[in-house]
Design a binder for these strands. Structure first.
Lengths: 347, 347
DNA sequence: CTGTTAGCGCTTTCAA
DNA sequence: TTGAAAGCGCTAACAG
C-alpha cells in the first residue's frame, strides 16, 4: 500500500526511480554509483544515462545510515579572520575533490564546552573525520579525552604524542625566523605583543620569542587579538618605560595597531622601531610602510588536513600523523633600515 | 540473528539502548527528544536520565531520512574575507540556538557551475533550507531556476521579486550615505574604485555612486578586490589624468591600497584626497589615519538569514521575505578636513 | 499517555 | 553479472 500517512511524500528522484527507468534493480544502481567493477559496462552506461536524465542525487543521510559517511566536519576556533576563511577554502576544495561534503561548528569559549558540543554535532551528523582549527589548551584536553567514532585532525600543533593527527604550521620555527631577522638588523630590545594567551598559537608565539629574547619587561599582553589591542599594548609598554627598538606582534593586525601607536608616539618605523607581524596575508603589504611578517598558507594547511582525513579513513589503524608546514619570512619596509616613511599615511 | 554481515557494527548508543535502559519504547524516547508534551514528566525524566547516562546522541542521518532535517546549508561566494568569517559566526550562533547543524559549500566561479554543484550537495545533505552568500548575476539566475526541495535565503539583495528570501545589506542606501558625506565635506571629484564587476555587490556599489556622481572618467576598475587592486587602480586613474579630490572604494581593503598609492604619489589624505571605503570592520580604524567607511554587521546579517530560514520552514507557504539592513556611516580622519597625518606610517 | 508497526532511501550479503 | 531481501536508526500514524 506504500507510504502510509506520509505527510510530505518526497518529491525527490530516488534510486528506485532510476532503477525502474534503467530496467535494473536498485542494487545495480547502487553498484554503479560505487563504481563497482562487477557491473558490466553496458549496464552501467544505461544506468548512468538514467541518473543523468532524471537528475538523480543520492541521499547522503540514507547512505550514512548504512555504511561510511561522506561528510567531514570542521570545527572553527578563534579568531574569525580571513585566514580562517581561507582555511575553509582550502578544506572545501580538497574535500569536494575527494567527494566529501562539509559540516561545520564553532567553538570559541574558554572552558571547552562549545568544543564538546561541536564534537557532539559531528557525531550526530555522522562525520567520517573532523578537523579542528586553532585550539586552546583546554580544548586540547577535550580532544584527547573525546570519545568519538571518528579520527580528529588538528590544524594547531598538539604535539607528536597527541591522539589527534596534526597538520599545522611550524609556529616555533616561523617565530624564530622573524625574531632572528629583527636581531640580524641589529635590534636588541624586541618587544613581543601577545594576546589571548589561552590559545595555543598565542603561547607558541611567545615561546618562540622567548627562546631568543629572554627579557620579561619586553613582553606586553594585549587585551585582544586585534589592531586596537596592538595599539594599546605598545602605548602601555612605552608608558611603563620599556623602550623597545623593535616589535614582534603575534598577529599582523596587532602589528598594524602597533605601527599606528608608534606614529602617535612620534616613533619612526623602522628607524626608531622596526615592526614585524605574523600571518602574511597579501594585505599586509599595505600595512604601514609595508609590514615584515611570516607568510603562512591557510589554504595549503586546509588541503593537508583533508589529505590526512582521507589517509586516516583509508588506514583506520594507522597512527595519527604529525606534519608541520614551514612559514616563510617576508621582509618589507617596516624592518628595512632606511625604509622610513616619507609619506603622509598614518595617524 | 541481528546485524547480519555488518562489517562495522555501530558502536554508538542507539535510541533502542536508551529505551531499554529506561524501560520504555523507542517511540517514547523519540517523543522526549522532540519535547512532545504528551509524555508525562515522570517518564520523561527517566528517559532524559538514561540519555544522559549512556551519552546518547541522536543520529541526524536517520532523523533526516524520516521527516524534516535539522541541518541548514550555507553556500559561500567571494571574497574569502573576515566578513564572511563573521557571517558564518552569526549564522552558526543562531542556527545552534535553533537546534540546527550547518553544512557548507563554496561557489566562486563565474558560470554558476559551482553554485549548481553546491545546491546539489545541499540536496544530498537534505538541508532544510540554504543560505547563499554574495552572488553574481549568473548565480542569481541559477538560484531563480533551481529545482530544489528547500527554501533559499540570499544575503545579497536579489530584489523583492526573487523567489529567494533576502536578508541583505541596503547597499544603495549605504553607498549613498558615504558618497553623500564626501560631497558634504566639499569634494566634487569623487573617484570610485570598483572590482569584480560580475558580483552583484560590486554593481550595487557602483550604481549607488553613479546616482550622485555621474562622471565616467571618475570610475576606475581594479583587477582584484584587494589592497593591491585599490593601489594600482588609483595609480592608473591619476596617470590617465583623472585628478580626483576624493576616493570611494568598493571595499575597505581597496581604500587602504588607495591611501598607500596616495602616499606614493605625494598626495595628503585627506587634504589632497579624502578616502572612504566600505565594510567597516574594526581594523579599519587603523587603516591609514583612520578610514571613513560604512559599517555593516555581518553577524547580524547571518542571524537574520537564519531567522528567515526558520520562518520559511514554519510557514512553508508563506512568501519569501525581503529585508534590508542599514549600514552605518563611520567618519574617521581619512575624510575629516584638517585630519592630515603628521606621522611616519605609510610608504 | 505509551507501545506497535511500517517505512524513510540506501547498501550489502546471499543466492541465482 | 545481477536481483531479492534484510536492515541501518529513527519518526509518526494508529491503536490501546
Amino acid at each position: 500500500m506504500g507510504r502510509r500517512g506520509r505527510v510530505l511524500p518526497s518529491q525527490r528522484v530516488r534510486m528506485a526511480d532510476v532503477a525502474e527507468a534503467a530496467g535494473v534493480s536498485r542494487a545495480t544502481v547502487s553498484r554503479v554509483l560505487a563504481r563497482d567493477p562487477a557491473v558490466v559496462e553496458a549496464t552501467a552506461a544505461i544506468v548512468r544515462d538514467a541518473i543523468e536524465r532524471l537528475g538523480y542525487r543520492p541521499n547522503r543521510a540514507a547512505q550514512a545510515l548504512m555504511g561510511a559517511s561522506r561528510t567531514l566536519g570542521v570545527i572553527f576556533g578563534e579568531p574569525p579572520d580571513r585566514a580562517s576563511a581561507l582555511l575553509l577554502r582550502g578544506i572545501n576544495e580538497a574535500a569536494t575533490s575527494e567527494g566529501y561534503a562539509l559540516t561545520v561548528a564553532i567553538a570559541t569559549d574558554l572552558d571547552g564546552e562549545e568544543l564538546r558540543r561541536g564534537l557532539n554535532t559531528m557525531v550526530e551528523q555522522s562525520a567520517a573525520a573532523v578537523m579542528v582549527l586553532p585550539a586552546t589548551a583546554v580544548n586540547a584536553q577535550v580532544l584527547a579525552a573525546a570519545d568519538v567514532p571518528f579520527p580528529i585532525i588538528s590544524t594547531t600543533d598538539l604535539g607528536p604524542d597527541s591522539p589527534c593527527s596534526v597538520a599545522a604550521l611550524d609556529e616555533l620555527g616561523a617565530v624564530d625566523v622573524v625574531v632572528g631577522h629583527l636581531q640580524e638588523i641589529g635590534r636588541s630590545r624586541i618587544l613581543h605583543i601577545g594576546a589571548r594567551h589561552e590559545t595555543l598559537v598565542s603561547q607558541f608565539r611567545r615561546d618562540g620569542w622567548q627562546t631568543r629574547v629572554d627579557q620579561a619587561d619586553l613582553f606586553e599582553m594585549a587585551d585582544e587579538w586585534s589592531a586596537r589591542g596592538g595599539c594599546d599594548a605598545l602605548h602601555r609598554a612605552v608608558a611603563r618605560g620599556a623602550r623597545p627598538d623593535a616589535v614582534f606582534a603575534a598577529s599582523d593586525e596587532m602589528a598594524l595597531g602597533a605601527m599606528y601607536a608608534a606614529a602617535e608616539l612620534g616613533l619612526r618605523v623602522p628607524g626608531d622601531l622596526a615592526v614585524a607581524g605574523f600571518g602574511g596575508l597579501p594585505v599586509t603589504e599595505f600595512y604601514g610602510p609595508g609590514l615584515t611578517t611570516v607568510a603562512t598558507s591557510p589554504q595549503e594547511r586546509g588541503a593537508l588536513a583533508v589529505q590526512e582525513c582521507v589517509r586516516r579513513l583509508s588506514e583506520p589503524d594507522g597512527p595519527p600523523s604529525y606534519r608541520l608546514l614551514a612559514g616563510e619570512l617576508v621582509v618589507r619596509r617596516s624592518s628595512v633600515p632606511g625604509g622610513d616613511s616619507p609619506g603622509p599615511v598614518g595617524p
